Each structure stands twice: as structure tokens, then as C-alpha cells.
Amino acid sequence: MDEGKYAESMRRFEEQAARVSGLRESIARLKGSARNPDGSVAVTVAPSGAVLGLQLSPAAMNRSHTQLTQEILATIRAAQHEAAARMAETVRPVVGEARYEQFQAAFRAHSPAVEPLGPTAPPPASSLPIDPPRRPAAPTRPDDDEFPDESIYKGRR
């Protein structure tokens, strides 16, 4: 390989390495956020779809548990869609359209998408523990009659 071709290859490699490094940092900072229509549920997710934050306003408590569950899940999905759109906006210009599908496949392989479960009925009472969990007993104190003839202070008060 002649000197000029080698220098050009090294320059391209260094440019590509710098773009990949910048891309990695951009992806690390990337998040998706969404709110439900009345703003009572807010969710923030990572590009992988992992929930990073969930905020409920007092207005969210005006719903039944089933309605609130549905609102939370719908808001998570909206935040995940936003994170995916931001990922595409960030990655496509760097890797190009042709390699974007490969990038997505590799990204999903490292962080598989998991659809959140929908609302479910509570478990039957028969499946719940009969006795509530018990807290450990408080440490015992010596009884007063262990020192019948003298004070534990031995006259020093």
C-alpha cells in the first residue's frame, strides 16, 4: 500500500472512530418522555425501553386501579416510541440508511424489547399468604428484677 492510500485510510478510520464515539455518548444521553392527555402520568424511558422515571400527580389517583394501570402502560408505550424516534434521528445520519437496520438489530440483541403486560385481575385470595409477614421481634431488655438490690447506675445519677 502506498503512503498516500495508507494516510487516507487512517484519516477515514479516525473520522469513523470519532463519529462512533460521539454516537455512543449521544445514545447514552438519549431518553424518551411522554405524558398522558391530562398530564397526570409522566414517564421517561431509556432507548432500550427501560423505565427510568414515573411521576403521578394527585389527579392520577382519581382513577380506578385498572384505569391508572392502562394510563401508565399507554404512557410508557408513547415514551418508548419517542425514544425510538430520537434514536433514529441520532443514529441514521452517522451510520447511514443502509446500515441503520443492522444497527437496530444489534441494539435489540443487546436490549431485547419486552412488551409491558396489560391490566390483569388481582390474584385470587386463595393464592395469597394466610398470615401476614411478621416483623422480627424487638430486642429484649433485661427485667427490672435482675438487679433487685441495686440500681444499674450504682448510685451515680
Rank of each mutant, 00 (worst) to 15 (best):
P133G: 04
E115Q: 11
P132Q: 13
D131P: 02
A138T: 04
A138G: 06
V114C: 01
R135A: 09
A125Y: 03
R135N: 08
P129H: 10
P136I: 02
I130Q: 07
D131A: 15
R135E: 12
P124Q: 12
P119I: 00
P119Y: 13
G118Q: 10
A125T: 04
P124T: 03
P122K: 06
R135F: 08
T120I: 05
P123C: 00
A121N: 05
G118R: 06
I130K: 14
I130D: 09
S127H: 05
P112T: 11
P132V: 04
E115V: 05
A125I: 07
A125D: 13
P124H: 07
G118K: 04
P132F: 12
I130N: 01
V114L: 08
P112C: 11
S126N: 03
S127F: 04
P129C: 07
P136T: 09
A125N: 05
P136Q: 10
R135K: 11
L117Y: 00
S127C: 06
G118L: 10
E115I: 01
P132L: 15
I130G: 09
P119D: 12
A121I: 00
S111T: 02
D131R: 14
S127L: 14
I130C: 01
R135S: 13
S127N: 09
V114M: 04
T120L: 11
V114I: 07
P119M: 00
S111A: 15
P119K: 00
P132W: 06
P123E: 10
T120P: 00
P136M: 09
S111L: 02
I130R: 13
S127V: 14
A125V: 15
P119G: 03
S111C: 01
S126Q: 15
P123K: 05
A138P: 09
R134K: 15
P133S: 04
R134V: 12
S127Y: 02
R135M: 12
E115K: 09
T120N: 04
S111V: 01
P139I: 08
S127K: 08
V114R: 07
P122I: 05
P132M: 11
L128V: 09
E115F: 00
P119W: 14
P122L: 04
P112W: 06
E115M: 06
R134M: 10
P132N: 12
P129V: 10
A137S: 12
P116I: 07
D131L: 14
P132K: 14
S127I: 06
P132A: 14
P133E: 11
S111N: 15
A113G: 06
A121T: 06
P124V: 02
